[in-house]
Design a binder for these strands. Structure first.
Length: 314
DNA sequence: CCGATTTGACCCCC
DNA sequence: GGGGGTCAAATCGG
């Protein structure tokens, strides 16, 4: 409730949630391993890696950043029932009681001028030069704003320091059905789709400043509360394509996997080598993943996770 | 032709 | 009054 539910706790919980998904996916992958669908396995593996990457980023952020880059989030004391009555009577703009997630992403695509797809369909509705910033800020809202009344918006702005990085601020929750579908485990089911476009690894740093985090959303998953999903979620499978300007919309091959940007910044960046293991190696990796997750469910998972993850992704 | 983007104007808050 | 967020007409692209 309190506005103090910020990084530390929220981040950890989110990580647990993320790892839960990893576990699910890993289980599915294990099931399909010896099976007939290598494509599905590949996709599941990419999903796992994606989520793991996010988890790590999140941990790094929550443990080391500790609120360094905090913006003046005018957190309203009011708890937000995000989908609740949007004040339409008055044209009040005010910094509404929206959940706010701040993410720093890298456009690892090389020359890309936009951050990666985050699994949602965004429509740009404005752009503005920001005082003191070198780069303009783009304003996006959910494509389904009108059709479904989805109030989610995001702001994308290239960082001053490194033009390959973007600060993405997500405001509000997605209430549109599609987004949830695209984000949830359904993505795995959709993996059977012929073309599972693996998107290049997107390095990102997450920061959450939710004024209120509905417990139910946290429990039931990360879909509505987490603004970022599988960067590798096949947009095509969910019938949702991001504007052609996305650097990652181009079909990419697995060799782009876990791209480490040329400008690999020391902090906030996590990247993985290509996930090219097979056969017994996969089994091994599974064991590592699963045991890591199991331990993550326990205490002090942060430390252990840090070690384990780096060990099996090294 | 429809939907997305661009871009200048408008509006609200500090 | 200025800065930032949104609107909406014009434009673009599939």
């Amino acid at each position: 409730m309190a506005a103090s539910v910020v990084d530390g706790n929220g981040g950890s919980r989110l990580v647990v949630t993320l790892l839960g998904h990893v576990k699910e996916l890993a289980t599915q992958l294990e099931v399909h391993l010896g099976g007939s669908s290598p494509d599905l396995c590949k996709h599941l593996a990419s999903q796992i890696s994606s989520i793991a990457e996010r988890s790590i980023s999140l941990l790094i952020t929550t443990s080391s950043l500790g609120g360094a880059r905090k913006r003046s989030a005018v957190a309203s004391p009011l708890s937000d029932a995000s989908d609740a009555p949007f004040i339409k009577a008055t044209k009040k703009r005010k910094t509404m009681d929206k959940k706010r997630h701040e993410v720093r992403v890298s456009s690892a695509g090389g020359g890309g001028d936009h951050p990666a797809d985050d699994g949602h369909c965004w429509r740009k509705y404005g752009q503005k030069e920001i005082l003191g910033a070198k780069h303009p800020r783009g304003y996006y809202r959910c494509t389904h704003r009108h059709s479904q009344g989805c109030a989610a918006t995001k702001q994308v702005q290239r960082t001053d320091e490194d033009p390959t990085f973007f600060d993405v601020v997500y405001l509000g929750d997605h209430t549109c059905v599609q987004s949830q579908r695209a984000a949830a485990g359904q993505a795995a089911a959709d993996a059977l789709a012929p073309e599972y476009n693996d998107k290049p690894g997107t390095n990102l740093t997450v920061k959450t400043e939710g004024s209120t985090v509905e417990p139910e959303q946290q429990l039931q998953g990360w879909d509505t509360s987490a603004p970022f999903f599988f960067s590798s979620t096949p947009a095509t499978a969910s019938g949702c394509l991001v504007p052609e300007r996305s650097p990652f919309s181009a079909p990419s091959t697995s060799e782009n996997w876990g791209v480490s940007p040329a400008t690999s910044d020391s902090n906030h960046v996590v990247s993985f080598p290509p996930f090219e293991v097979a056969g017994d190696d996969v089994q091994f990796v599974f064991q590592e993943v699963m045991s890591t997750i199991d331990r993550a469910d326990g205490d002090g998972f942060v430390d252990e996770l840090d070690i384990d993850v780096s060990s099996f992704f090294a």
